[in-house]
Write a protein that binds this DNA or RNA. Structure first.
Lengths: 197, 197
DNA sequence: ATAAGAAGCGGACCGTAGTCCGTTTAGATG
DNA sequence: CATCTAAACGGACTACGGTCCGCTTCTTAT
């Protein structure tokens, strides 16, 4: 009898693995050529030499694809604020970590912004980027650590909204704001929020 | 010779006016039936008995249509915070007006959120809702009035991001947060930002 | 090796926003 | 009333994201 595999340990079929590699490579190619917003699922399928159905089978949606492309850099970012050296990682006071978090996030968006933007726009009904829950939680913990008692859960989300890629990119690209100015404003914001009135 | 009219005083042709009325009525009908997200441009055209091209000629895009539908309530909202009675309108201290502004905005989004959401999603490249410039300016002025000196322009936009319809609706619909809690958090936020450290 | 069944595959198909362009018509002119 | 022209019209067309389902291929048990 064929051993039933639990979903976790299900093995990927070899052809499936090959196609996934092809698709990711093709995706990076196309993004390199045309930018993230120039990547369409049809062109990706054609460029990778697979059917369109395969693309959607792998990644579920365009957003899912973008998320996959982002995952390494996202993971690296997460690792840095959770386990890395201070002031971003543990070891520094909460406020300093909060400031560092925003500044690093701003830098991150400057680098991977288009991709993050494409990942956010789940076509149907605003699906939240899964990593976001982690950032919010992180901010919430730091707020609490600094003695912020009034609904830190919600305040974390408000502060996090300030760092949303679409907003930041809009400020930079349309209004010509630079990263330093964004960082200064973030510092001012969180400092005032944390400092008891 | 036919007098040349400047673009401002160009008169709308009678058939155009008739069609616009038909379209707006049909749009309100369909939204009443299916909600804002259920309104498609094809169905609108059919329901109004006009061609699809006419719909786009009138409103430019789906977002433009939604904006038009919102315009009266938007105008009313603007009038209230610019000329209405305190604490929302002039006459109250800046901080109180700021608090009132957020609370009213939250209430507004609870009422017209879907429409506002549909108006925001300009399909091509993040066009800013024109009214937003006014809100931001309003917040900026109030911040300055309260003695906030560190880049009030940018801080106004950060605070404004907190009140974005997609975010608020997500909190309410997905996380079950209610308007009062949002209002409390807003009060806390702006109070801390305005109160000098 | 063979058979069986699950996993994967592909591309026709759908709904949607938005564009294009040949045709119609309002309404001003004489 | 006849004429003329710019504005308005309409619907076929494109591009895109996403779904569906009959066919193919990998994997494993016999």
């Amino acid at each position: 009898m064929r051993p039933r595999l639990s979903p976790d340990e299900a093995v990927e079929r070899s052809d499936a693995a090959r196609n996934r590699e092809r698709l990711l490579e093709a995706a990076r190619d196309l993004i390199g050529e045309c930018g993230a917003e120039g990547l369409t699922m049809d062109r990706l399928a054609e460029h990778a030499g697979v059917g369109k159905g395969t693309v959607f089978r792998r990644f579920g949606s365009r957003a899912g694809l973008m998320l996959t492309l982002l995952s390494e850099s996202e993971a690296a970012f997460q690792a840095r604020f959770m386990f890395g050296p201070p002031p971003l990682g543990p070891g520094a006071p909460g406020l300093e970590r909060l400031i560092a978090f925003g500044i690093e996030r701003i830098a991150y968006v400057m680098e991977f912004g288009d991709l993050a933007l494409a990942a956010e726009n789940a076509s149907r009904g605003r699906v939240e980027v899964p990593a976001a829950a982690l950032w919010y939680r992180h901010i919430e913990v730091l707020l609490t650590e600094e003695g912020f008692a009034a609904d830190p859960w919600l305040m974390a989300r408000s502060l996090g909204a300030t760092l949303a890629p679409d907003r930041l990119l809009n400020l930079v690209r349309v209004h010509g704001v630079d990263a330093d100015r964004l960082s200064d404003s973030w510092r001012e914001l969180v400092t005032r929020v944390v400092t008891a009135a």
